[in-house]
């Protein structure tokens, strides 16, 4: 009987240890490090960073943003099509690129127009004040002063999944393109590929 009680206690103790005793532990991690979670089916923050970094470097090195007249290129952010199996916010990619372009000093981006509508509706809203007596009309922004974009940045993210036995993998294909709005021609394109694999353990909880 004593043996049985000891066995039962041992099993219970093992179970408690296995299932964990404390609450959830939360900590900050460095967003530029490799500490983040890596999941097979999702685009993790590091994947966005890799895709954006490669895209930005390629775009800046391509020279397509250099103008002979010294004026900065005006870019509009068009759409990045999500063709993955996950609900993702493609803004993470485009916002990273527009931020880097602004810092490079070679281009400016417009927020007055965008593929999914303007990022900032204010440019249009303030011009609608020309009928509003409340405002000093000499301070109201005039029509015909906003600068139209020269180029548009667009893209697509495609995902393919495969599995065999215990192994599952995802392949993400990021495609980015810059279109010259005068000619409609793509003057720069870049592809970034990210592949991730996960293997199910043989034994586990």
């Amino acid at each position: 009987m004593t043996h049985k009680i000891i066995s039962l206690l041992s099993i219970s103790l093992s179970l408690i240890i296995l299932t964990g005793c404390g609450g959830t532990q939360t900590r900050r991690i460095d967003a530029t490090s490799n500490e983040g979670l890596v999941t097979t089916d999702d685009i993790n923050f590091k994947d966005w960073q890799i895709a954006a970094e490669k895209g930005i470097n390629s775009l800046l090195e391509s020279g397509v943003l250099n103008r002979a007249d010294g004026r900065k290129m005006i870019l509009m952010i068009s759409t990045v099509k999500n063709s993955t199996n996950e609900h993702i916010d493609t803004r993470i990619l485009t916002d990273k690129i527009r931020y880097a372009l602004l810092r490079s000093g070679k281009a400016l981006t417009t927020t007055a127009i965008g593929g999914n509508g303007p990022d900032d509706r204010a440019s249009r809203q303030v011009r609608e004040l020309d009928q509003d007596d409340m405002f000093n009309q000499s301070t109201v922004k005039k029509s015909g002063t906003a600068i139209a974009p020269d180029m548009s940045l667009s893209g697509e993210i495609v995902q393919q999944q495969a599995s065999s036995g215990r192994v599952r993998e995802s392949y993400f294909f990021f495609h980015m393109a810059l279109t010259d709005l005068d000619t409609g021609l793509a003057i720069w394109e870049e592809n970034v590929e990210i592949a991730k694999q996960a293997k199910k353990p043989v034994f586990g909880w």
Binding site: R166, P201, G204
Partner: peptide
């Protein structure tokens, strides 16, 4: 689907 092939649960 993601559990180990042989799992306690």
């Amino acid at each position: 689907d993601n559990r180990a092939v042989i799992n306690a649960r």
